[in-house]
Amino acid sequence: MTITKNQNGSQLDMALEGRLDTATAPQLEAELKQSMDGVTELTLDFAGLEYLSSAGLRVLLSAQKVMNQQGSMVIKNVNETIMEIFDVTGFADILTIE
């Protein structure tokens, strides 16, 4: 998985490419942990994301919980397969998806 980060003050954009699964979720978790301090607007771009597993969902949930405390988190460009996962798991209700 490739993560492209773009930080602008308290604004953090992250574009994910590839598969977010058990093998790559720790990578995203580490990246987020490293850059989330002081961020009030977190945007995750899922345009290049092909697959999302429960390990990936866990990282998203953690990030959402942190952002609930310090600002807002938006996920954009979610494809149909992943949207289905969000719907089935109920994540669609707790995430802000554009």
Partner: peptide, 12 residues
């Protein structure tokens, strides 16, 4: 219909 995952949010 699916609710949110267990252990995700206390208020679910």
């Amino acid at each position: 219909r699916a609710g949110f995952v267990l252990a995700g949010m206390e208020t679910t």
